[in-house]
Write a protein that binds this DNA or RNA. Structure first.
Lengths: 154, 154
DNA sequence: TTCGTTGCAAAAGGTTTGCATACCA
DNA sequence: TGGTATGCAAACCTTTTGCAACGAA
């Protein structure tokens, strides 16, 4: 199906931000690929990844590119427990949630209509505007899970 | 009913952390009162509030006290968009979710049964174990929101 | 007296910005 | 060529840590 070419998609996104540069294309390509594999990525890890891949992009450029993308509404941003900014490429207008294995990193796409409706309802009844939600589920996948049951946690 | 006296509650909590000090009591008292009024508070604002109230507590002490409280499971911690740590006193052991204003920090407790059930269902059908969820809703409260309706944002 | 706690200041970690240079259009 | 993007380094902000002094038990 279409949309499977990160390079082409990245090029398109760059043009939305302004002038085309190789750095921006590289950053966006990496972000798009990361979205498929991990969902959210930190700026630092993305930068490290680019350097390791032989694309010496400046850290500032990564920050500026991702910030611009987020401002353009093409990426979501959250803060992790360490205070790092995590970015996630937003392919379309649809909004999905994942269940991620904390051990091996495998992820499952969830049918989140329930949550979407709940969040929309909350937004409506609370009087708040511009309501956004972050929903993350983590756990151990069947392969990584413990063989012994019965550890009540939380 | 009991639990309405922040000072007494603060004293109790201090003893859970270790040695009793006036500073810890002051910090916890402020946190407990803040929980009623705002829900989550940033360390910086709590510190500023204490200084203004004539309680010259060191910033490090505020950080250390709140971190210890969170580690003891008596407080929840989140990060706001600026990377600041927001703490909220946790009266009981129940698990709740909040809608937080990104502008002024005021928060609203949500009826999250819908989400809890959804998360539990996902855990059951996915084969994953030890599933935990992070749900955060953010937006602009009625006071901070735009006066003009209909600004297509998001 | 003992040893955990405080407070200051410096360090750490992540993010943002100023400015000269490089390069797309 | 004109003006935007880059990259380095310094500035910033919040959080954490080292250490001498303080004070609860």
């Amino acid at each position: 199906m279409a949309g499977a070419d990160p390079q082409a998609t990245a090029t398109q996104e760059v043009s939305l931000l302004g002038r085309f540069t190789q750095q921006r294309a590289t950053v966006l390509e990496a972000l798009i690929e990361a979205e498929k594999a991990d969902g959210f990525v930190s700026v630092q890890s993305l930068h490290t990844r680019l350097l390791a891949a032989g694309s010496p992009v400046g850290l500032s450029t990564v920050y500026r590119t991702l910030s611009a993308l987020a401002e353009a509404g093409r990426a979501d941003v959250v803060r992790d427990m360490h205070g790092e900014r995590l970015f996630r490429y937003r392919p379309g207008s649809d909004h999905r949630h994942y269940l991620i294995c904390t051990e091996c990193g495998v992820s499952v796409t969830l049918d989140s209509m329930t949550v979407e409706n709940w969040a929309a309802g909350v937004a409506r009844t609370s009087g708040f505007t511009a309501v956004r939600h972050t929903v993350e589920l983590t756990g151990l996948c069947p392969d990584c899970g413990p063989s012994t049951e019965g550890s009540p946690h939380d």
